[in-house]
Amino acid sequence: MKGHPLQNRFVLISGCSGGGKSTLLAELAARGYQVVEEPGRRIIADELASGGNALPWVDTATFLRRAIDVALQDMEMAKIHSGWVFFDRGLVDAASALEALTGEPMLPPICAALRYHRRVFMTPPWPEIYVTDAERRHTFEIAAAEHRRLMETLPTLGYDVISLPKISPAERADFVLTTLGGCVLPKA
């Protein structure tokens, strides 16, 4: 399944929480590429600052609906960039989680029209680097289950799932860029 040409520049980095996604995105940003921070982390920071309840450990469904809205806004805003745009999680992650939580059919209606590059990079469960913090309160087992759900979901949406090796952030960035190498685009 081929996405809209614009979205062919939008590369999704997904996978296990605490698997090194944000660190990889920081490396890509340091190299001059456009990156979009994880919607969930931004929502949690806003909700904690404002005393809101759209938190995954308080009202998961509201949190996920808000994550879908933020991911849609992120995709719209990313259209201004001419080169690769790397997303730390995004629409598929939030829609898949909401569908798993509520049973509402979210994936085909939302994710068919708005697509990322056909290659999605997945961070595997990596217990040696997994840590919890004020914004990531779930266990490693829950993070690994999330990874399994995404590994099952993404191929059903027509994505080629590529597992990232457990190597340094610089080597991971090289791996991503080399894998995308057949579609060389300017940085920005």
Rank of each mutant, 00 (worst) to 15 (best):
G19A: 04
G19L: 03
G19C: 05
G20N: 06
S22C: 03
S22K: 03
T23E: 09
T23I: 06
T23N: 07
L24G: 07
L24C: 04
L25Y: 02
L25E: 05
L25W: 01
L25K: 07
L28I: 10
R31A: 04
Q34W: 00
V35R: 03
E37H: 03
E37Q: 11
E38P: 12
E38R: 11
P39E: 08
G40M: 05
R41S: 08
R41D: 11
R42L: 14
R42T: 15
I43A: 08
I44E: 09
I44P: 04
A45T: 15
A45Y: 02
D46H: 05
E47L: 07
E47A: 12
E47F: 01
L48H: 05
A49E: 14
A49D: 14
A49F: 01
A49I: 07
S50I: 04
S50R: 11
S50F: 00
S50E: 12
G51D: 03
P56T: 10
P56A: 05
P56F: 00
V58W: 00
V58N: 11
V58P: 04
D59C: 07
T60R: 14
T62I: 01
T62K: 02
F63C: 09
L64P: 10
R65L: 09
R65E: 15
R66P: 02
R66V: 04
R66H: 03
A67P: 07
A67F: 00
A67I: 04
A67Y: 01
I68Y: 01
D69L: 01
V70I: 13
L72Y: 01
L72D: 09
Q73F: 00
Q73K: 12
M75R: 10
M75P: 08
E76D: 12
M77H: 12
A78G: 11
A78K: 10
K79Q: 15
K79S: 15
K79Y: 00
H81W: 12
H81A: 14
S82H: 12
S82T: 15
S82D: 15
G83W: 01
G83T: 12
G83N: 07
V85D: 10
F86W: 02
F87I: 11
D88V: 08
G90F: 01
G90M: 06
L91Q: 04
L91S: 03
V92M: 07
A94E: 06
A95W: 01
A97H: 10
L98E: 05
L98T: 08
L98Q: 04
E99T: 13
E99S: 09
E99D: 10
A100H: 10
A100N: 14
A100W: 04
